[in-house]
Structures are given as structure tokens and as C-alpha cells.
């Protein structure tokens, strides 16, 4: 920032950067308060040193202990959930593409039986990627599709099954109940197959404070194991995941940086924080 002193203006600048990145007021203030205490303890006197220290702290906070996915079991199942339009179906295609390229046998389940054209959307991705898609007709029971898909996956020696679900707002009680039911069916079928189940929550990077509520309620309903943060190719910084990680300790695993199958990356705290503090593109 080219400043020579650590003063109120510097902290206000920091506040501005964080809030404009959607980190949120509460988390921003908490982070800055902690920073103020830390710099006393660490005897930090230069703005540049302070920025280095602060960014390192944030990166450490976002670091994940485990890798992205560990596919130790014969069958691994990823159930993908999130609000409407967040990028679930596209993220599924991207993940499928990645693991197919790594030689895994991948299968998709068209668990969004509700939205117009949702099944066809997944089928088109399946065709493009050369991956099997298990589907029933529009309006059928999502849990039944999931059940079918796990059975097929078992029968066909699939390594990775990814289950799409309909977008839903986390505040819609009946739809969240439906989601729980899908999860229960998957869990039950997985247990008898000695399969591993992982729930991936898709968050849109352009989302503001609402993402905290999304993460909380989806986590309460279906126990989220990881987050995919989509649409980071825009100008949004996605800072809300800092608040989410801070409050809920859910690891950020993947990021989406475009609409094509290859536009998927593992979440990298280093790059994420650099981008958060860079102005412009």
C-alpha cells in the first residue's frame, strides 16, 4: 500500500479490502482486532511486514489438512448440493472429467428431477465426457434415482459415482427434508457396498453474506465434507469462504474458473489470498 506507518488509516484500508471481497463485517472486524493484538506481540512495526504477516495468517487459516478427495474405497460417492444456479451440475461435469482422465470409472446420477431441462443438461455432459448417466424421467423421486445409481455403480464396478441434486434454497424446509432422504438412501446403500460418501457443497463466489447461512443449513441437513467455490473467473473475490471456514471449519476443496470441463482447480489458499488482495484483474 506504500504506507510508512501502521495507523488507523491502514486498518481502514484493510477493512475496505476485506469487506469488498465479501469477507463480511463480523469476520473482518474480528480478523482486524486479532491482527492488532498480534502485531503488538510479534513486535511488527512496518506496514509491509504487517501485510505479509496478515496474509500468512489468512492462508494458514484456509489450509486443509487432507487432500481434495481420497478415494480409498472400491466405490466412492460424491453427493453435490447447493442453492439454485450455484454451479452444481457444471462442477459435477468438471469433477467427472478430471477423474475420468485419471483412468477412473466414473458414473453420474441425474438426481435433479425437478428443474426444466436439468436431466438433459447432465446427459449432454455425460455424452461429451463419455461417462454413463443414470436417469429417470422428470418429476420422479430423487431418492429413487440415487438408489438406482448406487446399485448400478456397484454392479458395474464404478470407482466414482457423482450424484446431482436439484438446487434449493437452504431455507426451504420440505426441500431440505427431501435432500436428507436422498442422503439417507445413499448412506444406507453405501454401507452395504463398503463405499465412501462425501457431500460437496457448491457455493457461488459472487454470493455475499448469505453463503454463511447456506453453509450452516446445508451442513446441518447433510453434513458437508467440502466446498467447491464456483465462478471465480469473474471479478468477485469469494471472500465469504473465509467466514465460512472460520465459523464452520468446512474445508474449501475446489474452485470453478469457467464454464468448460477443464475449468476446475484444487483450492489453493496461497493463490486465493493473493487474488483477494490484488486490485484489478
Amino acid at each position: 500500500t506504500g504506507r510508512t506507518n501502521i495507523d488507523d488509516e491502514l486498518f481502514e484500508e484493510l477493512e475496505e479490502v476485506l469487506i469488498q471481497a465479501d469477507v463480511g463485517v463480523k469476520t473482518t472486524f474480528a480478523l482486524i482486532e486479532k491482527l492488532k493484538e498480534d502485531i503488538k506481540e510479534e513486535d511488527i512495526k512496518e506496514p509491509e511486514e504487517l501485510m505479509k504477516y496478515f496474509q500468512a495468517e489468512l492462508k494458514a487459516m484456509l489450509q486443509n489438512e487432507e487432500g481434495t478427495f481420497n478415494f480409498d474405497k472400491d466405490l466412492n460417492i460424491i453427493m453435490v448440493v447447493g442453492v439454485n444456479g450455484a454451479g452444481k451440475t457444471t462442477t459435477i461435469a468438471k469433477v467427472a472429467g478430471r477423474y475420468k482422465d485419471q483412468g477412473k470409472k466414473v458414473m453420474l446420477a441425474a438426481g435433479d428431477t425437478f428443474r426444466a431441462g436439468a436431466i438433459e443438461q447432465l446427459q449432454i455432459w455425460g455424452d461429451r465426457l463419455g461417462v454413463n448417466v443414470i436417469a429417470q424421467k422428470e418429476g420422479s423421486d430423487a431418492a429413487a434415482v440415487a438408489y438406482d445409481a448406487v446399485q448400478s455403480a456397484k454392479a458395474r464396478d464404478v470407482d466414482l459415482l457423482i450424484v446431482d441434486t436439484a438446487g434449493r434454497l437452504h431455507t426451504q424446509k420440505n426441500l431440505m427434508e427431501e435432500l436428507k432422504k436422498v442422503k439417507r438412501v445413499i448412506d444406507r446403500e453405501a454401507e452395504s457396498a463398503n463405499a465412501q460418501v462425501e457431500v460437496l457443497l457448491v457455493l457461488d463466489a459472487t454470493t455475499g453474506q448469505n453463503a454463511i447461512s447456506q453453509a450452516k443449513l446445508f451442513n446441518e441437513a447433510v453434513d458437508v465434507d467440502g466446498i467447491a467455490l464456483t465462478k471465480l473467473d469473474g471479478t468477485a473475490k469469494g471472500g465469504i469462504v473465509i467466514a465460512v471456514k472460520n465459523e464452520l471449519q468446512i474445508p474449501i476443496k475446489l474452485i470453478g474458473v469457467g464454464e468448460a470441463a477443464e475449468d476446475l482447480q484444487n483450492f489453493d489458499p496461497e493463490e486465493f489470498i493473493e487474488a483477494l488482495f490484488s486490485n484489478g484483474e
Binding site: D22, V83, G85, T206, T207, Q209, N210, G234, T235, I240
Partner: peptide
């Protein structure tokens, strides 16, 4: 525009 949009709404 999605009502859940955050700070970026202005740029968009």
C-alpha cells in the same frame, strides 16, 4: 440479478 449477490453486484 440474484438477490444473494454480494459486493460484486455493483461491478456487474
Amino acid at each position: 440479478v440474484d438477490a444473494m449477490t454480494g459486493q460484486d453486484a455493483v461491478n456487474v
